[in-house]
Design a protein around this nucleic acid. Structure first.
Length: 595
RNA sequence: GGCCCGGUAGUUCAGUUGGUUUAGAACGCUAGCCUGUCACGCUAGAGGUCGAGGGUUCGAGCCCCUUCCGGGUCGCCA
């Protein structure tokens, strides 16, 4: 094993160009590939920037050639030599450094390596489980390395923006008090206080509001957050937020600051000028037009409400849903006749059942019209339906009748599924959207009470304040989400800053005064010492980077992600700990995984 | 917790209604030859508890049951 003593890197491997011809160079890296032609040996050396071909010629330096001979893939090398042109026939146009090569005059084998369990190449089809177990090798692959570099650039862009806008970066504790509303907390036992636990933050929400009371009126933090809930392609239990809070502002001030942020990030990272201001929809509009509070606006397929048209019809499926207070809605797939066969519609019917729809009624408008339900409707009812749905020859109408929530969930999801199947999505588009005026509360059937849709510190809209006592379900909140291409990339609200209103909120949510005081007392106390009007927003940084990187999976932009059962395959976390360690924490286990 | 998909050399895959003796291919790996390759080429070679356990059968990679692992998703995610 040799050392790097006396060597200094001239440039990264991927940075050499024709302009460097004739210069001396020293590079460090990993062996991508050895091509030994017998007497002439090429080594492609890789670092995080790319590849450089290093050449060893037996006829020039026999001893050096012999030293390079046993080099294998992923060995760690230092190579010193002269950059020279490859010669016309030997230029490789497919690589950025393809016009040059490093003719070696010194080689140090800094380390050997075992043959990796998979090849270190771009666009791999290797099973993700194996890649995650050997994450250090996976991260050597250019596509993954590129994502990690892009993420780093994003941090810089974000920090630069907020610094320029007068924001102050402040760290809040990772060990904090458990806040039982909302997601499950990760708990950390206290050694010093037997039986007591810290919680890891689901977000720095209360701390940042306290910072507003303290007068740091523009706060930002790139904050690690933790939620002990099940994973998804776009959800990890251990994730990162761009968290911000501002005082003396209203909703539109916060929206403006964050549109500015996204504009800068898209320019810095992708070189794109995004259109401002962004589109806005109220929650109600978003649900009625797209069946979702995070609609993908890259395609149409908007929902149509058929409830009034079908009121009084005899078809039980429709009539029953309407009588029960639900609705009948559809999406009309223009030109869908050629693309959606009976069989494919059956598959879509199965798809909507995962969203609790009982079925999917349909009309196919070919030469002859066929439908799953036409015989149950009077001819004039059917034609009224088709007029309302704006359905013409060649179209397909897909209908769900049920409670509003089921209709919206299933048609909202179906919109996306149809768009994917019919390839209606232009992947080059970035469609940003603000969704505003979310409901303040939603009724939790299981708990038998209202719960905060956003969180309990969200301010109701002023004009809806009178409804708080009479019809709390109708109260809208000063809450807003930022949506991009069907993903919720951030959300926030104007907060309650009046301790009296905050108390009313807590009692609406079913807390007794004592419970509220025990859980949130420090915040309510703080609000009695001059809380400014304030509000903020938090972005899901991982999701944002995922969309910037153009991947559909959050794991590909996180260096060491967790898998679906929340374990980490490389380190093997979580794991059992020694009894001694448990005893020190005053913890006795009632269950183990093996039981 | 529910539903769907997947698991066969190091890797990616093929493997017929359950029956061709020794489960194949490509890439990778090892060795030899080769001076302009870059998907180097040529020759030879090594490499498999078919995720695991049980069952059906004269016979199981293939059928059945259980289970483990990974992915997607519903619930869940203030």
């Amino acid at each position: 094993m040799e050392t790097v003593q006396g060597l200094k890197r001239t440039k990264y491997c991927g940075e050499f160009r024709a302009a460097d011809i004739g210069s001396e160079a020293t590079v460090f890296g990993w062996v991508q590939k050895v091509r030994n032609l017998g007497g002439l040996l090429f080594i492609d050396l890789r670092d995080r920037t790319g590849l450089l071909q290093c050449t060893f010629d037996e006829s020039v330096d026999k001893a050096l050639f012999d030293k390079a001979f046993p080099v294998r893939g992923e060995y760690v090398l230092a190579v010193k030599g002269v950059i020279r042109p490859r010669g016309e026939a030997a230029v490789n146009d497919r690589m950025p450094t393809g016009a040059v090569e490093l003719l070696a005059n010194e080689l140090r084998i800094l380390n050997t390596a075992k043959t990796p369990p998979f090849e270190i190449v771009e666009n791999t089809s290797v099973n993700e489980e194996l890649r995650l177990k050997y994450r250090y090798l996976d991260l050597r692959r250019p596509d993954l390395a590129k994502n990690i570099l892009l993420r780093s650039k994003t941090y810089k862009s974000v920090r630069d923006y907020f610094a320029d806008e007068g924001f102050i970066e402040i760290e809040t504790p990772v060990l904090m008090k458990s806040t039982p509303e909302g997601a499950r907390d990760y708990l950390v036992p206290s050694r010093v206080h037997p039986g007591k636990f810290y919680a890891l933050p689901q977000s720095p929400q209360q701390y940042k509001q306290i910072l507003m009371v303290s007068g740091f009126d523009r706060y930002i933090q790139i904050a690690r957050c933790f939620r002990d809930e099940d994973l998804r392609a776009d959800r990890q239990p251990d994730f990162t937020q761009i968290d911000l809070e501002m005082s003396f502002v209203d909703r539109d001030d916060i929206i403006a600051v964050n549109e500015g942020l996204l504009k800068k990030v898209w320019k810095d990272i992708l070189g794109l000028d995004i259109e401002m201001p962004f589109m806005r929809l109220t929650y109600k509009e978003a649900m009625e037009r797209f069946g979702s509070d995070k609609p993908d606006l890259r395609f149409g397929l908007e929902l149509t409400d058929l409830t009034d048209t079908l009121k009084g019809c005899e078809f039980k499926v429709f009539a029953g849903a309407i009588e029960a207070g639900g609705s009948v809605r559809c999406i009309t797939v223009k030109g869908g006749f050629d693309k959606l066969s009976r069989k494919e519609i059956d598959a879509l019917a199965e798809y909507v059942k995962t969203y609790r729809a009982k079925g999917l009624a349909w009309v196919r408008m070919g030469e002859e019209m066929t439908s799953s339900f036409a015989k149950f409707l009077k001819p004039e009812e059917l034609s009224a339906l088709l007029v309302a749905a704006k359905a013409e020859k060649g179209d397909v109408v897909l209908i769900v009748a049920d409670a509003d929530k089921v209709v919206f969930d299933s048609l909202g999801a179906l919109r996306g599924e149809v768009a994917r199947r019919l390839d209606l999505i232009d992947k080059s588009l970035y469609k940003f959207l603000w969704v505003t005026e979310f409901p303040l509360l939603e009724f939790d059937e299981e708990a038998g009470r209202f719960v905060a849709m956003h969180h309990p510190f969200t301010s109701p809209m002023d004009e809806d304040l009178p409804l708080l006592d009479t019809d709390p379900g109708k109260v809208r909140a000063k809450a807003y989400d930022i949506v991009l291409n069907g993903y919720e990339i951030g959300g926030g609200s104007i907060r309650i800053y009046n301790s009296e209103l905050q108390s009313r909120m807590f009692s609406l949510l079913g807390f007794t005064k004592e419970q509220a005081k025990a859980r949130f007392g420090f915040l309510m106390d703080a609000f009695e010492y001059g809380a400014p009007p304030h509000g903020g927003l938090a972005f899901g940084l991982d999701r944002l980077v995922m969309l910037l990187a153009g991947c559909g999976n959050i794991r590909d932009v996180i260096a060491f992600p967790k898998v679906q059962n929340a374990s980490e395959l490389m380190s093997g976390a979580p794991d059992f700990v020694d009894d001694v360690q448990l005893d020190e924490l005053s913890i006795a286990l009632t269950r183990k995984e093996e039981d």
